[in-house]
Simulated assay, not measured.
Amino acid sequence: MAIVIFVAAPVATIAFHFGVAALSVLFHMGATPRQQELMEVSKKYRNVHGPNYSDQALLLIDRFGELLPTRLASVQLLLDEEKFDGGSLTDKLRAARIAAPKYASAECRALLEAFASHCRLSEASVSTLQGMIEIRFTLQFVQQGNFGEFPDRGDMQLDVAHLEYGAFNDRPLSFLAEGTTSARRRTIYAAIAKDCVATRSIYGNCAIQGIRIGMSASGTARNIRVSTSGTATLASIGEISDKRTSEF
């Protein structure tokens, strides 16, 4: 079950800043009605997450169907060194770097099954962690379908939900099959998709703005235990007058 931290940002007048200017430049000529509405939300939105956060979320909504470098799924994998060929750690790291795109491709397939229409590797890195091989990569993705419907009336606001998905797989690494950890991540992706459907039933729209999947390790060198968890950020446009709940 997801734990949700819900941020409903009321419409409020704020000082003109760079993020709003960026939206203005993007939309100022030949803006569609929806872009004009997004600009109005941006002008009034109280930015509670740091500079330009709200505008970044609004831009991702406006460019819902595009692959963007700011709409990412960040994934961390911890793998047994024995999965990679080589007599030395240097050789194993080289083999892991060669294999990293294969793992990213498999993760893209998981996103496509759950909620994405397009997915591609953005970047990948390989290192060691507690006697294991750590592979990190980020994936750009496009969500299936469309954002949804905007409110028909009233002032609008941007609402952002930060969801956390509980840890799985607290088992010794030596007994932890790679297919099991993949299945756990697929479970998280399916839950994210389900939560977006629930969000859309409340607001009429939903955008998956970003995902982070991590694995943590504990225990001794001979009995390392790992767990998998995830977070996701969902954004929606709603009416201020709407009565909504933060529990999905």
Rank of each mutant, 00 (worst) to 15 (best):
A2L: 02
I3E: 12
I3Y: 15
F6P: 11
A8S: 13
A8T: 05
A9Q: 11
P10G: 02
V11F: 10
A21T: 09
L23T: 07
L23K: 14
L26E: 14
F27G: 06
M29H: 14
G30V: 01
A31Q: 06
A31P: 05
A31L: 05
A31V: 04
P33E: 10
Q35T: 03
Q35A: 14
M39C: 01
E40Y: 02
E40D: 15
S42I: 00
K43W: 06
G50E: 03
G50Q: 03
S54K: 07
S54F: 08
Q56K: 12
L58R: 11
L58H: 09
L67V: 05
L68S: 13
P69E: 11
T70K: 02
R71C: 07
A73V: 05
S74D: 12
V75R: 08
L78V: 06
L79C: 04
D80L: 07
E82Y: 01
F84Q: 04
G86Y: 01
G87F: 05
G87W: 04
S88P: 04
L89D: 12
D91K: 14
L93C: 00
L93I: 11
I98S: 13
A100P: 03
A100R: 00
P101R: 09
K102Y: 13
K102V: 15
A110I: 01
L111A: 07
L112T: 11
E113N: 13
E113Q: 14
E113V: 01
A114R: 09
S117E: 15
C119W: 09
C119L: 07
S125V: 02
V126H: 08
R136C: 10
Q140S: 10
Q140P: 03
Q140V: 01
F141L: 06
V142D: 01
G148S: 06
E149H: 12
F150Q: 02
F150R: 09
G154C: 06
D155I: 05
L158E: 08
L158H: 05
A161R: 12
A161V: 00
E164Q: 15
G166R: 11
A167M: 10
D170E: 10
R171N: 10
S174K: 11
G179W: 01
T180K: 11
T180S: 11
S182W: 10
A191V: 01
A191R: 05
A191N: 10
A193P: 01
K194N: 14
D195R: 05
V197C: 00
R200F: 00
G204T: 00
N205C: 01
C206M: 05
A207I: 05
I208M: 13
G214K: 13
A217D: 12
T220H: 00
N223W: 02
N223G: 06
T228D: 14
A232F: 06
A232M: 04
A232K: 02
I240V: 13
S241Q: 08
D242A: 10
K243E: 14
R244S: 07
E247I: 07
F248K: 08
